[in-house]
Computed example of a mutant assay.
Amino acid sequence: MSQTRSTARLMDGTALARTTVAEAAASAAEIKRRTGVTPCLATVLVGEDPASVTYVKMKQNRCAKAGIESRHVTLPASVSTAELVAAVTALSDDPAVHGILLQHPVGPHIDERAAFEAISPAKDVDGVTMHSFAAMGFGEPGFVSCTPGGIMRLLDAYDVELSGKHAVVVGRSAILGKPAGMLLLARNATVTYCHSRTVDLAAHVRQADVLVAAVGKPEFIYGADIKPGAVVIDAGYNAGNVGDVDFESAAERASLITPVPGGVGPMTIAVLLAQTVGAAARQLGLDGV
């Protein structure tokens, strides 16, 4: 990456993730000390998509470093919805498993929503079920979607005041854009959702005190449209290690900005591990862990 005339302060997701995982590891060790049980995350992978295989291995490695047991279930790409649901249900019913992650995508012939809904809400540490989505919307206890959860932790770590601020979320996916907006709304931000049908997107972006870019298009948002002093959260990750925001031009106007890589990405896995340990503590009836 070339040098930028950046005036924005970088939001270091790598450092915060390291702290988050260390806290989760300490809690996992305390759970094992008190109960003899090691928190366990089960991952389910359908097929052999290279990116998915790499991502699952990364999660398993991070689990090992955090003192979390990982169990992996690999199913052929030809698996039926019923077979996948049965595999996920078996993990939901297994008391030795505390968290479940079904790796996306699962294949166009599979009813992915049915497979997600086979995850017990108590073990939905990736925050993908309708139960978790409703809990986020109503502000009830539950598991947040990991990337939005990581975004909120970053905002808190950098003391970003959200109450009364205008947050603009560009993207409306079920596990990123939509829950990110709900979590911001719960913190008393005024939230605008933008998406592929939004008319004059730039006009909305220019109003954002806090901008969350989650549209999945490389360098889609330009610095000229960033409100001076805005906080820019780039949740995109595209080929060439670039996000959804043109970093160099945005950094000249923003007060805080996440880099890609090293911003939101590391926080996603950190939240997954933290929520797995939290799930284990709840299932084992432990307080204060």
Rank of each mutant, 00 (worst) to 15 (best):
I221D: 01
V264L: 09
A118Q: 13
A42Y: 04
A118S: 15
S196T: 15
K57Q: 13
A115T: 02
G240H: 11
H195M: 10
T147R: 02
V231W: 04
T192R: 01
A157P: 05
R113T: 15
D93T: 11
A213T: 07
A25S: 14
V79Q: 00
E112A: 14
A26E: 11
L102D: 00
F247C: 04
D200T: 11
L75F: 05
V242H: 04
G107P: 02
V289S: 10
Q3L: 13
A96S: 15
A208Q: 02
V212H: 00
A251F: 06
F116T: 05
R34W: 13
E248M: 08
T20G: 05
R33K: 06
G99A: 04
A224D: 13
K32A: 14
A82F: 12
G278Q: 12
P218C: 15
A239C: 12
I269C: 06
P259Q: 07
S27C: 09
V260W: 10
G139Y: 11
Y222F: 14
G13I: 09
T129I: 10
S173G: 13
H166Y: 03
M136F: 10
V289W: 13
V210K: 03
L185A: 15
A224I: 06
L101F: 06
A279C: 12
I151R: 00
A202W: 14
H109P: 05
V199I: 15
A135T: 11
A180K: 00
F247W: 11
D49Y: 09
E23P: 13
F247G: 02
L286G: 03
A213M: 06
E69A: 12
T190W: 02
L16I: 15
N238K: 13
G36R: 09
K32L: 09
L91T: 07
G142F: 11
T258P: 07
L45V: 15
A87R: 08
T35M: 13
D93V: 08
L102H: 01
V242K: 08
S92A: 11
A254L: 03
V169G: 01
V242S: 09
G149P: 08
I151S: 00
V264Q: 04
C63Y: 03
A214Y: 09
G47I: 02
H204Y: 12
A279S: 13
E252Y: 04
G164K: 00
T198P: 11
A66Q: 03
R187Q: 08
Y222P: 01
V128L: 04
V264D: 00
R206M: 01
R33Y: 05
H166P: 00
R62D: 03
D93Y: 10
E112M: 11
A281T: 14
S163Q: 10
I257W: 01
V199C: 10
T268L: 03
R62A: 10
V199K: 15
V168W: 00
G142L: 05
L184C: 09
V231G: 03
N188Q: 10
D49W: 06
S120A: 14
K123Y: 04
G139V: 11
A86M: 12
K32D: 08
E161H: 08
A24L: 06
A66R: 06
A251D: 08
P121F: 07
G263N: 05
A66Y: 02
T43V: 09
P76I: 08
A25F: 06
K65N: 06
L101W: 05
H109W: 05
G263I: 08
